[in-house]
């Protein structure tokens, strides 16, 4: 959730953003904008529910097309601001097209934030069900739900402490001595982050076991791959570098130094292959985006 909030940008005051004030909530434009948006959303959902089913898809496709075109236009239209950030080409009621981008991006973040609640409901349904029915591994569900509750409680308490520090009600030193801060330190930094690191460290062992299987000589391709991998590995290991270091780098025989061969493999074979895959991915996503925007991508389940 934190990264969702972190991505939300405040639009600049203007058509897309209202000035930030400390006025009472009911007198602020943004409050009524939120109320209006909610009412508008209900009206749209009601409208879609009443529309004959054969019209729903064209309406949804039209929305998708417009949403897609919004970002296409961002790329195609000339920049509305010069290098110093001054507006030079106003669009849309004297405002700037670029100012609309964070607003639309925020809309997506709000929707994603609401949907996160559905995810938490999923966790509750699966694990409370297992716990109450005392199914196999119910204890793990108990640990998960307990950990979740502890993290939420300490997280909220720590957040309220941060607010108090921001209001200068207490100093940060006083805040750090409270049970809430100590508890948060323990469950988040001392436990969760270390558990993350422990999972991350497993990767080294998994890479080793995967590499062992992949490099077994079963075919010509596997043999070539193993030989290539060995050369590249050797080009990073000092003892193997020392074997060919006596070859002068600026002469023809310098081409046979292990580090030169390793660099050549990485730059001349590996990099172009990765770029080719990247190019294919770019073309693939472009083709898919066109299919989605034109409403052609119905999914293979709708056949």
């Amino acid at each position: 959730m934190n990264w969702l909030i972190a991505q939300v940008e405040s639009p600049e005051p203007g058509f897309w953003g209202l000035p930030h004030t400390d006025a009472p909530l009911l007198t602020q434009g943004f409050f009524w904008a939120i109320v209006g948006s909610l009412v508008g959303m209900v009206v749209v959902i009601f409208f879609l529910a009443r529309v004959p089913s054969n019209f729903r898809r064209p309406i949804a496709v039209a929305f998708v097309f417009l949403a897609g075109m919004f970002y296409v236009l961002e790329w195609v239209l000339p920049r509305g601001k010069d290098m110093s950030g001054e507006t030079v080409i106003p669009f849309l009621f004297g405002s700037n097209y670029e100012d609309a981008v964070p607003v639309v991006a925020n809309l997506s973040q709000i929707i994603f934030g609401l949907l996160l609640a559905l995810g938490i409901l999923s966790i509750f349904r699966v694990h409370f069900g297992r716990l109450f029915r005392l199914e196999k591994d119910w204890f793990f569900s108990f640990v998960l739900l307990g950990s979740m509750a502890v993290m939420i409680v300490f997280g909220l308490m720590n957040w309220s402490l941060d607010q108090a520090v921001a209001r200068e009600a207490i100093t940060s030193e006083q805040a750090s001595r409270t049970i809430a801060a100590q508890g948060f330190q323990f469950v988040f930094f001392d436990m969760l982050q270390n558990l993350d690191a422990a999972m991350f460290s497993l990767i080294a062992f998994f890479i080793l076991s995967a590499a062992y299987r992949a490099f077994r000589i079963k075919s010509i391709e596997a043999t070539i791959m193993m030989a290539t991998a060995l050369v590249v590995l050797m080009s990073f290991i000092p003892i193997f570098l020392a074997i060919t270091n006596w070859l002068p780098a600026d002469q023809f025989v310098g081409n046979f130094r292990v580090d030169t061969i390793g660099d050549w493999i990485l730059d001349t074979i590996n990099a172009p292959a990765l770029r080719a895959i990247d190019l294919g991915l770019g073309l693939g996503i472009l083709a898919m985006a066109i299919r989605i925007m034109l409403g052609l991508e119905r999914g293979v389940s709708v056949d």
Binding site: L281, E297, R298
Partner: peptide, 20 residues
């Protein structure tokens, strides 16, 4: 690479998608 994005067209075998 792009085989991933080709999957829906490939599995669905819809001519229009294959065109893309």
């Amino acid at each position: 690479g792009d085989e991933f994005y080709a999957a829906s067209a490939y599995l669905g075998r819809q001519p229009v998608l294959l065109g893309s």
